[in-house]
Design a protein around this nucleic acid. Structure first.
Lengths: 215, 215
DNA sequence: TGATTTTTGTACCGTATGGTAGGAAAATGG
DNA sequence: CCATTTTCCTACCATACGGTACAAAAATCA
C-alpha cells in the first residue's frame, strides 16, 4: 500500500494525480499529441488549465509523462503475461491476447498502442519524444528477448534460435496488431495474426537447420 | 507520356499539381496531419493558401489526396520490387531494402511509412482517414499475398503454407520497420530485422509439418 | 481566530490557425 | 485592343490555441 501522507499545508487537491495522468493519457491516446488541446485534457481530467499546468507542466511535459506511465504499465503487463511456468507458446499467446484487448479498447474506437500510434508520429520533429518512444519500445523488445531466451534454454526452441532477433520479431507482431487495430481491423483478424506469429516464432529454426532452402 | 493539354483559357498555373501534392505529402509525412499547418503546406509547395485551397480543397481533403497518392506510389513500388523472376527470398529482400531506404529518407530524419506513422494516428477520430488507411494497407497485404502464393505454387514454399496469412506477416515486417525507423533505429538493425523476417517467412512450414512442437 | 500555505477557478493575453474576400495579374479569344 | 477567363496575392476574419495573472477558497499552524 502507498503510505498515507501526512496532511499537507494548504488547500487540498481536488484530483488524484495518478488518475488524472491516466485520463490525460487516454486523451492523447485517442487523438494523438498534436490534435489534443489543453481544453481536451482539461475535460478529460476534470482539472482546469492552471491546475493542469501546476501539476504536470506544459502540454509537452504532460505528454512525456504519459509516455513514461505507459512504459511502466506495459512493462508490468509484460511481466505478468509472459509467464515463465508454461511453454513459450502459451506465454506469447497470452500476451498477445491481452495486447489485442488493450488495443481494441477505447471510448472512441480501437486505439492500438500509444507508442506506435502517437509517439512515433511526433518522433521525427521532437527528439525527446523520439528518445522516449525508442527506449520504451526497446524495453518491450528486451522483455520478449528474455522470455524467448528462457524458452530456448528450456527446449521450447532449438539452440540455434536467436533470442534477440526473435524478440524483435515478437515486437513486430505487436506493432502490426497496433496499426491494424487502429485502422479498423476486426478482432478475429488480429487473433489470427497473433496466432500465426506465435507459430512462426516458436517454429523458428536456426539458419543451419532449415529444410526449405532457396532454390 | 501524359498528353500535352491544349492551352487553357485564363492565367496559367504557377505550380505543377503533381509536384505540389508530393511536396505537401512530404510535409504531412514529417510532422503528421495535425501538426502540419497551412503555412507549413504553403511553404512546402510554394503555393499561397488560396491557391492551395483552390487546387486541393481544405487541409483535410489535401491530406486524403496525399494518402491516395501514397497508396498509388506504394502499389507501383511493390509491383516493381516483387520481381516474379527470381526466388521469393530475393523478391522480399529487394522489397525490404527499398522500403528501408524510403523509410530512412526525409529532410528532418527518418519518416517511416506515411500510412502507419501519420494516417493511423488520425484514424481513431476520423472515419474517412481510417478507411483510406485501411484500404491502402490491405492493398499491400494483397500484393505480398499474390507474390507469396506464386512462390508457393513454384516450390519456394511448401504446399501447406498460407499465402494470405504470410502476406499479412510480410506486411508486419514493413510495419515494424516503419515504426523503428521513425523512432531512430539504425539502418543495420532494420536490415537485420528484414533479413530475419524473410528467413522466417520463407522458412515457413504449415502447422502439420512443424518439428519443434509445444511440450 | 488570524496568519500562512496551497489549490482552485475565472478571466484574460498574445499568437497561430484554417479559411476567405476581393482586386491585380496573366493568359486566351474575338 | 478589349472582353473574358483563370489564377495569384495581399490583407483580413473569426476562432482556437497554449499559457498565465490574480483573487477567492480551503486547508494547516500557532
Amino acid at each position: 500500500m502507498v503510505q498515507k501522507e501526512r496532511a499537507r499545508r494548504g488547500r487540498p487537491r481536488a484530483y488524484d494525480p495518478d488518475q488524472a495522468l491516466a485520463q490525460a493519457t487516454a486523451a492523447f491516446w485517442d487523438a494523438g499529441y498534436s490534435a489534443t488541446s489543453l481544453d481536451d485534457l482539461s475535460a478529460a481530467t476534470g482539472m482546469n488549465r492552471p491546475s493542469l499546468y501546476g501539476a504536470f507542466g506544459d502540454k509537452r511535459a504532460l505528454y512525456l509523462k504519459s509516455i513514461e506511465g505507459y512504459r511502466t504499465m506495459a512493462q508490468a503487463a509484460m511481466q505478468k503475461s509472459l509467464r515463465y511456468e508454461g511453454s513459450l507458446r502459451e506465454a506469447l499467446g497470452e500476451l498477445y491476447d491481452r495486447a489485442i484487448s488493450l488495443y481494441l479498447s477505447g471510448e472512441h474506437g480501437a486505439r492500438g498502442c500509444l507508442l506506435t500510434s502517437t509517439a512515433a508520429t511526433e518522433a521525427v520533429m521532437d527528439p525527446d519524444i523520439r528518445r522516449a518512444a525508442r527506449a520504451a519500445l526497446e524495453e518491450i523488445d528486451a522483455a520478449f528477448e528474455a522470455r524467448i531466451r528462457y524458452g530456448r534454454d528450456h527446449r521450447d526452441l532449438p539452440r540455434s534460435a536467436d533470442p534477440a532477433m526473435l524478440g524483435k520479431l515478437a515486437s513486430a507482431i505487436l506493432h502490426t496488431l497496433s496499426i491494424r487495430a487502429r485502422t479498423g481491423a476486426p478482432r478475429a483478424l488480429l487473433e489470427a495474426i497473433a496466432g500465426s506469429g506465435v507459430e512462426l516464432i516458436c517454429g523458428a529454426v536456426g539458419p543451419r537447420r532449415r529444410k526449405i532452402a532457396a532454390r
